[in-house]
Design a protein around this nucleic acid. Sequence first.
DNA 1: CCAGAGTGCTCAAACGATTGAGCAACCGAG
DNA 2: CTCGGTTGCTCAATCGTTTGAGCACTCTGG
Lengths: 360, 360
Amino acid sequence: MSESENATAPSPKPQSARGRGPATLRSIASVVGVSPSAVSMALADHPRIGRETKEAVRAAARDLGYVANSAGRALRAGRSTSIAVVVPNTAQHVFGHPYFMHLLVGVNEAANAQDTAVLISTNPATDHDPAAYDRILRSQAAAGAIIASAAINDPNVSRMVDGGLPVVLIGRYPHLPHAVSVGMDDVAGAAAATRHLIAEHGLRRIGHISGPLEHQTALDRYQGFRDAIAESPEPCVQSLAVGDFSEEAGRACAAQLLDGMPGLQAIFAANDEMAYGALLELRSRGLRVPQDVALVGYDDFGVSRLTTPAITTVRVPAEELGRRAARRLFDLIDGAAEPVTHENVPIELVARESCGCPPD
Amino acid sequence: MSESENATAPSPKPQSARGRGPATLRSIASVVGVSPSAVSMALADHPRIGRETKEAVRAAARDLGYVANSAGRALRAGRSTSIAVVVPNTAQHVFGHPYFMHLLVGVNEAANAQDTAVLISTNPATDHDPAAYDRILRSQAAAGAIIASAAINDPNVSRMVDGGLPVVLIGRYPHLPHAVSVGMDDVAGAAAATRHLIAEHGLRRIGHISGPLEHQTALDRYQGFRDAIAESPEPCVQSLAVGDFSEEAGRACAAQLLDGMPGLQAIFAANDEMAYGALLELRSRGLRVPQDVALVGYDDFGVSRLTTPAITTVRVPAEELGRRAARRLFDLIDGAAEPVTHENVPIELVARESCGCPPD
DNA sequence: CCAGAGTGCTCAAACGATTGAGCAACCGAG
DNA sequence: CTCGGTTGCTCAATCGTTTGAGCACTCTGG
């Protein structure tokens, strides 16, 4: 009541246009001398706003460094301007894994292109909690979510997929056929790796160190391994040890394979960490890699390149995975026609030394 | 049945309590039969709300899976419930660096404890843009920011520090004495590493591969290197090559040091990536590590542990850095008395094989 | 029987952005 | 001169949450 816009009211209230705090539509409005609505419409390039007004508004917005308040916009629009990247199980080795970081780089890039912020969401160590990411999503802090590295049986995943929020899964989820997901062909990748050992290096007695079998990725890589063995023209002997993607497990599983299978010629590990563990075990037994036992890993996030010998591996294009997942999520959010439910990014065998190939 | 409870208004408005979409204060209110205000106060455990009402509200909130809409809350409160982690310069080697990920783990942990979301903010590749993170902060999507790995001369940093938003810097910023920062004593760390080469292994001719000297971290590590040389009871000879923290630079700088300083006995690299590059160069010249040339790195994010020989390094507690930075940021946001402007987390020398110490 | 205190709620306003409805001014055609 | 259309804005309501003010009621002491 004691207020007005362009008037020079001597009221003590600091309701001034150029007051402290970030610029708002109102502050621009009072500078330009129009209503906040007009400012909003001008910035949106609404046809019913005059050219001069638009120019004046844009100039004032630039001068004041105006950026729309995200809470106000989200509240009105009914949806946030952020997307969330969700990592359901925060075992340290998951969130801390380089895979996740590469994913994030890709997601971030795609999100930047859409002027969208990226929210990281994970569980605290105590998993009896109703899940931190659940709260983030229910609070509508994110317009959608990308879910990475979930176990097959994680009930949270299907709950979120059915939760009404746009969700893109990373990986393959055959038991959730209606879910949108972006993954890679792990079966083909693992088969290629195994076939390389068989066909290029003539190895016949091969052990596989798999990941935990409640992860689809572990299942698929094991499947690819068996496929390659089965399709081999020469008869091959296979063996399996189940690990948990950790270096320690790789070491223990390698020991198990070596003890259980005389004349073992090669080990294919479902990720590089375990391959490195296997390398340590082989080395400690005085076995040479690749001369005595050949070794192949999976992932190629830097680990495998650094070891001596460098580990032959299958490159997982995590960054591309993140990029595509984000783009798909934006399609979902924008309600674009979306018949595609699963997309694979190409994988690639990276032959280094541990399989017996010549060093570079 | 699609209508409100106590009012039998025949209006066609689908204002029903249990309508589609997420639960709101209003929907709880109409279930319980009180006003939205009462619900809000009940959930906040306000003393002026009766015990029975509180219980009914809490039960209804639980049943409906109510989580406060973050946009509404942020708008009303005038501040977001997220914090941002900002990485000003997105050269791939910065955002993609494991350091960043460890930082994120720590930040995330502390943020989870405060029911706060973590926003990742970085620049797209094209840096002519007014900066993506700038927009995030100006849009008030975050209540505060943690800024990681900024160059000394990055004008964005001081702008953000002075921008009114609570900001915690990671690292040491001697030219921004009023800024709150969390870092580590790189001078001491580098001195310890260098001193180890001098005192434990008796080396006297030592080269340093530094990072880009517009980074305080690079300056401090170089300073520590020189301090250790200067304080040595035996006269030492030093030499410097300036890199950019990349493996390629490490390799080139190692070549430069080897060519420029006859009888070089040791190399101290300002990070592990460059130490690894140096290792490759030494190896390609047929020089043995550590017998011919000893090698020390800095960071300990996994790389240095994996190489052969494993690289002696200085452990940077990135996770702890992130944790403390987040906690300090919450202090700032909550307006806690905050005289402390800089805090150091302890560093630790990790002696492995590349310096000449016995393997494990 | 009434003042005063205490209890338990409701009301209304506010945060900032957006948008359908509406209104005033003007122009050209009839 | 008036009617219809167009232009260029303003108004008011809305999103969901929070909170100071206020209202109705009960209890207690005098």
